[in-house]
Write a protein that binds this DNA or RNA. Structure first.
Length: 532
RNA sequence: GCGGGCGUAGCUCAAUGGCUAGAGCACCUGCCUUCCAAGCAGGAUGUUGUGGGUUCGAGUCCCAUCGCCCGCUCCA
């Protein structure tokens, strides 16, 4: 299925528009139109209902170690800057980059290193991206080439230092960049920030610098104590949040898949360390199931467990739920959701200071001065279980879903073109009724003989409880096709027979079947269609 | 960030540097219409992505810029 057609339908029918389009658009930002906003709201509401408000904490679900509670949260987008230092985002997302004017390549300033070499009466810095033995070899080869010497003249090279970081180099005019043939092709280091920087207070200045959150999860961790103290939740329990996040993606691409402003649906699930592996597996499988329940085909949806080498420094298990988007090459998948076992990394980091892995354990990362690199809050974020009088940092399972990515996957999955009688091709969005933007359309078969009045009466009676549309424009077939493109599961037509026996035509979007349904059954039928 | 391609009506596309930028579909109004984009009559639709330049004359040629797509890079 071609992505172009899906994008075109989204634009034409009002699912998605480029942001600020009349001014030429803005790369990495998108707007949801009238149909799109309903679709995305339905996705978010299905998630919130299935994960939070509809959760039964009294009953133990089969396959889980225990019953559990779920509560929600909605925290501010701008938080104390220290949050992002302790979470690791500041270090991970905040780099200085240097560009090579000759090779057009870009490097992280702190990742380049090299050796000083005496050459032609001056000192030059032969740089490399690799360290260790490999780096020594590489700088040697490059030095020979740069000086136009033969391999057997290796012994004549006059090295003035071992491998040192580019950070120690002040004068870039004597640096040979890793892919350059001449000196001084690197630009000055430029700040490269994947987090959106902003300023709190009317007066711009570094002391007011802050960041738009790159994820919603940290708001949950920093409110962990507040929630525990205010709600009587006991482990195991989860805190959920839906909200906007912001990342300065280098290459926004693939429609809304990689946007700079996006919405997340995240859960931090706090449990006893002994049970965390069991919970991790259960959440992973449950979240996969959620997507298939809402219509994503298992043929296009995979649950991919990360290789140990792929894992973040703190994680002891991560799985991605990935969808075979039409814009990806055959056999490739794009991430919809990550389910990570984060252990006690976050709570401890916000208490003690940013942690790093030391062998199998996590310790506070120290700066050059021997003090914590990023100081924590110092607040006790341990959980005290007064049922067994035990104090501990709960381990955390984090199912983190992209609302826009999920919505995009549902759009791609729903899109279908199929031949119909008469050689025509019909375009239909086969949304699960729960997420369909419009639940039912109401038509009078013709605009006379009391049909419009009867149809409007039905429309008004349903409008309060369901997203329904009224349409009396053009021929009936045209109206059906219009609703097919919007993904409306049911069209209800008031016709001549309605006037005599009080039944309507109930037309199914996918099968095109028409049945007669008594007026009084309409609401019940719609309701059962929308059951989870 | 680099390289390539593209940008004309809501959509698909025309228009040799030269007349008022057209056609089909879709859309709107009316008529007609008893079930899957039917018919008839009429109607509206454009700063040719944007800004400069060359030219008597630019949708067409040049430059810049924005956006989209593809590949690389980057990121994870």
């Amino acid at each position: 299925m071609s992505m172009d057609k899906i994008v075109a339908l989204c634009k034409r029918r009002g699912f998605l528009f480029p942001s600020s389009e009349i001014y030429g658009g803005l790369n990495g930002f998108w707007d949801y139109g009238p149909l799109g906003v309903e679709l995305k709201r339905n996705v978010k509401e299905a998630w919130w209902k299935d994960m939070v408000s509809g959760h039964d904490e009294l009953t133990q679900i089969e396959g889980t170690p225990a019953s559990f509670q779920m509560v929600g949260l909605d925290c501010s987008i701008i938080m104390h800057p220290q949050v992002w230092k302790c979470s690791g985002h500041y270090d991970l997302f905040h780099d200085y980059m240097v560009d090579c004017k000759e090779s057009k390549k870009r490097y992280r300033h702190d990742q380049l290193r090299g050796r000083w070499l005496k050459a032609k009466e001056q000192s030059v810095f032969i740089s490399s991206q690799t360290g260790g033995e490999e780096g020594l070899e590489e700088t040697q080869t490059r030095a020979l080439k740069f000086l136009g010497m033969r391999n057997k003249q290796v012994g004549d090279l006059e090295w003035e230092s071992g491998m040192v970081s580019l950070l120690t180099v002040k004068d870039f005019s004597v640096v040979l960049a890793p892919d350059a043939t001449q000196l001084g092709t690197l630009t000055e280091p430029r700040e490269f920030n994947l987090m959106f920087k902003t300023f709190v207070g009317a007066l711009a200045g570094e002391e007011g610098a802050a960041f738009l959150r790159p994820e919603t999860a940290q708001g949950i961790f920093v409110n962990f104590k507040n929630v525990v103290d205010s709600t009587r939740v006991k482990t195991p329990f989860g805190i959920a949040q839906i909200g906007k996040s912001f990342r300065n993606e280098i290459t926004p691409r693939n429609f809304t898949f990689r946007s700079r402003e996006f919405e997340q649906m995240e859960i931090e699930f706090f449990c006893h360390p002994n049970q965390s592996q069991a919970w991790y597996k259960w959440w992973r499988d449950r979240r996969y199931q959620w997507y298939t329940n809402l219509g994503l085909s298992p043929e296009r949806l995979i649950l991919r467990e990360h290789e140990p080498s792929e894992l973040s420094h703190y994680s002891c298990g991560t799985a991605d739920i990935e969808y075979a988007f039409p814009f990806l090459p055959q056999g490739e998948f794009g991430e919809l959701e990550g389910i990570a076992h984060r252990a006690d990394f976050d709570l401890r980091s916000h208490q003690e200071g940013k942690l790093v892995k030391d062998g199998e354990t996590l310790i506070v990362e120290n700066g050059a001065d021997g003090k914590p690199r990023h100081k924590g809050s110092g607040k006790d974020l341990q959980y005290f279980d007064d049922r067994v009088r035990e104090r501990y940092w709960p381990h955390v399972i984090e199912p983190s879903a992209g609302a826009d990515r999920g919505t995009l996957a549902f759009l791609c999955e729903a899109y279908a073109e199929e031949p119909v009688e008469g050689g025509e091709v019909r375009t239909v969005m086969r949304f699960h009724p729960r997420i369909a933007p419009v639940k039912a359309a109401i038509f009078p078969l013709v605009n006379r003989e009391g049909m419009p009045e009867k149809a409007k009466e039905l429309y008004r009676s349903l409008k309060g409880d369901f997203g329904v549309q009224y349409d009396d424009g053009g021929a009936i077939g045209r109206r059906y096709r219009r609703q097919d493109e919007a993904g409306t599961p049911v069209c209800i037509t008031i016709d001549g027979q309605t006037m005599t026996d009080n039944t309507v035509t109930w037309r199914d979007r996918d099968s095109l079947q028409q049945i007669r349904v008594p007026f009084g059954e309409i609401e019940t039928r719609l309701r059962s269609l929308l059951k989870p």
